[in-house]
């Protein structure tokens, strides 16, 4: 069994048996792992402890076979009893310090966060990773306001420990989350609620890989005025328009060369391009 660094995970799958009635938990989660889920969490808020422990032990055996970390949601005792790799706690669960004291220094402890202050507090408190969400409204967390991709952007700019975007993420909106700066994604119903979890996971992985390599199809990574941006624009003209600067008096430098305004419409920008957009401001 290969021993990967768990921090390299990209696709975080969480169990939700209510989304796959009639199908076995282990079968669904194995499909997810085969499709590319590289960290698995057992979550079953209302299950009796005995059933939870049984599932945890079964998943421990499964995930160990694939070299995938197993995290248990909330129930630190179950995590310990099943020999899971760690636990995930919410803002209202056992405090991080207590969880750490019980689980020990080597356990992976993750925390759900819903704003940057919580994220930074978790980081300071010694969390190993954080969840950033819910990005979108989600049936698995009814009643919680979505934090939108705005918080994803903040996390991308400010959080230095591993963080994973979570909450209502599907194949349809994953591109937006990745464009906001996420490099890890967690999906629940989109994976386990699917008839073909492996295929869904492969599709998520393709989007994650594309984002890392320079964007989901149609999006490239560029630097504008020193800032990393993702854009679907392919010409200087389209970029200027997408930035809301059409009609403004400005000068564009593309990879160190000035692009005359007449050439904006045809000047191509490629992945990795660096642009400077300047204009006249007050000065003496």
């Amino acid at each position: 069994m290969e021993k990967r660094n768990w921090r390299d995970f990209k696709l975080y799958a969480i169990t939700a048996a209510n989304y796959h009635p009639g199908r076995d938990l282990l079968e669904v989660m194995e499909q997810a792992i085969l499709g590319g889920a590289d960290i698995v969490q057992l979550r079953a808020k209302d299950a009796p402890k005995e059933a939870l422990l049984r599932d945890a032990r079964a998943l421990r055996e499964l995930t160990a076979r694939y070299g995938v970390p197993l995290i248990v949601n909330d129930h630190i005792d179950v995590a310990l009893a099943a020999g899971a790799d760690g636990a995930h706690i919410g803002q209202d669960d056992l405090p991080l310090a207590e969880a750490r004291r019980i689980l020990g220094p080597d356990a992976i402890i993750g925390i759900s966060t819903h704003n940057l202050a919580q994220a930074l507090a978790a980081e300071r408190g010694g969390a190993d990773y954080i969840g950033v969400g819910p990005v979108y409204p989600t049936g698995t967390k009814p009643g919680r306001a979505a934090v939108t991709t705005a918080y994803v952007r903040e996390a991308a700019a400010n959080v230095s420990i591993p963080w994973v975007a979570i909450g209502g993420i599907t194949l349809a909106n994953a591109g937006e989350v990745l464009a906001a700066g996420a490099t890890r994604i967690c999906a629940v119903s989109a994976i386990v609620g699917s008839e073909r979890p492996a295929e869904v996971c492969r599709a998520f992985r393709a989007k994650l890989d594309a984002a890392r390599a320079g964007g989901e199809p149609g999006s490239i990574a560029i630097t504008v005025n020193g800032r990393r941006e993702r854009t679907s624009a392919r010409t200087v003209g389209a970029l200027v328009e997408s930035l809301g600067l059409a009609g403004k008096s400005l000068v564009v430098e593309l990879n160190g060369e000035i692009v005359a305004r007449e050439a904006w419409a045809t000047a191509a920008i490629a992945d990795g391009a660096s642009l400077e957009l300047v204009h006249f401001v007050g000065g003496g």
């Binding site: 504008v224 005025n225 930035l243 600067l245 957009l277 401001v281 000065g283």
Partner: peptide
């Protein structure tokens, strides 16, 4: 005048 970067947030 001076020449400066366009502020992308407050153009």
């Amino acid at each position: 005048f001076a020449v400066r970067r366009v502020n992308l947030d407050y153009a």
